[in-house]
Design a protein around this nucleic acid. Sequence first.
RNA 1: GGCGCUAUCGUCUAGUGGUUAGGACACAGGAUUUUCAUUCCUGCAACCGGAGUUCGAUUCUCCGUAGCGCUACCA
Length: 538
Amino acid sequence: MNSKIFRTRQAPSPTGYLHLGTARTVLFTDLITRHNQGQWFLRIEDTDQKRLQGDAVVNLLTALEGLGLAAKEGVTLQDTQKGFNEFYNVYQQGDFGPYIQSERLELYHKYAQKLIDMRAGYWAFETIEEKEELKKIKDVTKSAIDYYKFNIEKVGEEKMYQSVEQGLKDDNRPTLRFRLQRPETIQVFDELLGKVKIDLSLEEDFTILKSDGFPTYALAHVVDDYLMQTSLVIRAQEWMPSLARHVMLFQTMWEDCEIVMETKNGKNVPEYLHLSFILGETGNKKMSKRDGNVNMQDYLDKGYLPEAVVNYLAFLGWNPGTDKELYLNKEDFELPFAQRLEKLLDNLAVDFSIDKLSKSPARINFKKLDWFNREYIKMLSLEEFIDRAQKLKPDFEIDSNNLPYILDKNRVTLLTDIGLESDCIFNYQKPLNEDVKWKKISLQESLDNLQQISEFVISKLDEVENYTNTLNKETKPLQIDKFIDIVKKWEDIVKNWLSQNDYQAGNFLWPLRVKLSGKVKSPSPFEILALLDSDQIR
RNA sequence: GGCGCUAUCGUCUAGUGGUUAGGACACAGGAUUUUCAUUCCUGCAACCGGAGUUCGAUUCUCCGUAGCGCUACCA
């Protein structure tokens, strides 16, 4: 028994993009896997032929990779020279493939046949009308529909147990149902919820193979996760009600097979972990396309850092039980981007465990995400900040002197906000007189003060320039240090002058700042002075 | 309707059979004798209801209530 091997997986269906909730499930999967030193793989569940999209998988993998959550096994963007899927334009890697369910049809048919041979599966011939009729009866009698009995009476045993091959060719387009053995109740286990008793007396025989030959989730799940040796299934809580059915299918299907695992749910049945939902900002529904804001790529494109998104998402339904929230510090930002994300994941994984998971749904809170983003943008180097922002805003022009962007970096929430503050350097707009007025004094006084302090600043230009030149000799590539020194210099000079003359700071600094920036809300006057050439100031 | 899950500040959550029920975001106020911001400080704010067990329940049990999920040839 390989019970020591920790192996889990994520199996999204290709709906077109990476859903925020899926991203969190993948993140939790990765974290739990790291914590247990296991391996997880990515499988594509594309058994619903009604909603196939060619670019869906690439979109999914791209967004996942952007978060540092690319799978090491399964479907991949990397050219592995193996398992290329033309429809999705992706490759596969690993020993348990194929990892795309539409490529595994033969397997599903093989095991569907096994069920038929065991008399645990049978072809069902109800028409839509008949099914509706049966449901009406169910509402009245309040007992489960007996599909088995219905089909025995309608078509007889011979047709019900015809082979998979024959069944799929049958003109009546039957579906294959699993014949549920019904004990009164079955006890199943979830790693978070613990023991759950489920009453099976109202469960019905369920479809495992559709008439188009594709398996339903249940069959695909049970076949794949045994064959791929999944030891833990992590999925959303909406699956909880069908856990009993899946456990029973597992038990029946693999009863006589090599034991690859044994859990509280039985022989060859994996462990399960059902994660709570993520709620939208308003209302009590889980996040859906209708609320907007569910496409992970949109977040990345808007300028949320993957570092911030991952860190925030980790806290949606999990908490280490300590005060620690930022799992990356300033020093970590000296690492290259990819390594930094690895480090973040590793750091989180150390504290991450199933018993610290929350059972109740978590509501997304964008203000808190913003906070994480600001924190991490501040930790970014100026170069990386500009580089990453520019990738998101290709038409944003970068000046040869990068320093103005330091004004943005310290003040923006999103990467794409770049330009918000540096704008006052590049696109200076003369302020209105009324804006120059400081709230504690009159307009005239404000203008006079501005005149006075302007003259003083201009008189000091040479002194600061000399100072700058001395710095030039000493300062190395890091221009930021120089910038900070000059800001400090201006601050010293001006504040000295203010106190010598016994002037109130606000009376002079407000007009000066507004004049320099052209804006009511802006960086400090000293930062702007440090960035401008002497000529510009004059 | 049936079945299942859940329930602590506005939000994410910590926590305990006896605590001033803790932190973070948000919000409000103050300080940094320069605005917005940053930083720092302070404040505001919560155990769904009822019964039982107990000397004592937010914590344990039961019953409600509410929310959510499932009840497909979707996953």
